Simulated assay, not measured.
Amino acid sequence: MDGSKPLLFIDFEFSMPDGNSGYKGFYAEIIEAGLVFSKNGKVEQEFSSFVTPVKGKRLTERCKSFLGITQAQVDQGISFSKLIEALNRLDSPKKVVTWGNMDMKVLRMNCEKNRCAFPFENDEFIDLSMEYKKFFGDRNQTGLWKAVEEYGKKGTGQHHRALDDALTTMKIYKLIEKDKKYLEKPNPTTIGDRVDFSKLLSKFAT
């Protein structure tokens, strides 16, 4: 793994409207956060918490069913402001790695709605789903767990649980970085590498 900057693998789960109607003024809110913070290839911190939504305090049936999250879990979660405090405590600059671009879009929107500063302004962003797409030449973006299965591996834990998805994102990142190294061109060999001159000279000496 890249040791030049710390790496933050992060995943959020969001609230959802019921069907196409939702409620007036609905916007996706972060209701679960999972992160894995790594420096020099070593995991230094894992963080997992439910987050209590600010506007849509009652989860829809669709949201609870799809994510397997209960109302009681988010009611007992940390506040959004506490989540931002936790994110601000991480080293910067760093590389923030997500699968897809929605995590950062929703985080930025939630920051705007709650009138707080976006915590990653000085950081670099990597959308690993796009890196995966470019690396393998896929026409369409691949889902997180489908991508890890295409590597012949299994995702960590349970899909659509924030920390498990963050850990799975880290797993794919390591696999892609390993493949990139295999594809790097080796240094060109010199004629000295190809010919053993000691044997050649001894041949002419006899």
Rank of each mutant, 00 (worst) to 15 (best):
L7F: 11
L7I: 14
F14Q: 08
D18Q: 12
K24N: 02
G25T: 01
E29K: 05
L35R: 07
F37K: 02
F37Q: 02
K42N: 07
Q45T: 14
Q45E: 12
F50P: 10
T52R: 06
P53G: 05
T60S: 01
C63H: 05
C63W: 06
K64F: 05
I69H: 03
T70R: 12
D75V: 09
S79Y: 03
F80V: 11
L87W: 07
N88R: 05
R89I: 01
P93I: 15
G100Q: 04
M102T: 12
M104I: 15
M109I: 11
K113W: 00
A117H: 14
F118R: 12
N122K: 10
E124M: 10
F125H: 13
S129G: 09
M130Q: 01
Y132H: 13
Y132A: 08
K133Q: 15
K134V: 09
K134E: 13
F135M: 10
F136I: 04
G137E: 02
G137C: 03
D138P: 00
R139K: 12
Q141E: 09
L144K: 05
W145Q: 06
V148C: 01
E149P: 04
E149G: 06
E150G: 02
K154N: 13
K154I: 10
Q158D: 02
H159L: 07
H159C: 06
H160G: 11
H160S: 13
A162D: 01
A166Q: 08
A166H: 08
K171F: 12
I172G: 01
L175P: 11
L175F: 09
I176M: 10
K181L: 15
L183D: 08
E184D: 10
N187V: 04
N187F: 03
P188I: 09
T190D: 00
K199G: 14
K203Q: 11
A205C: 09
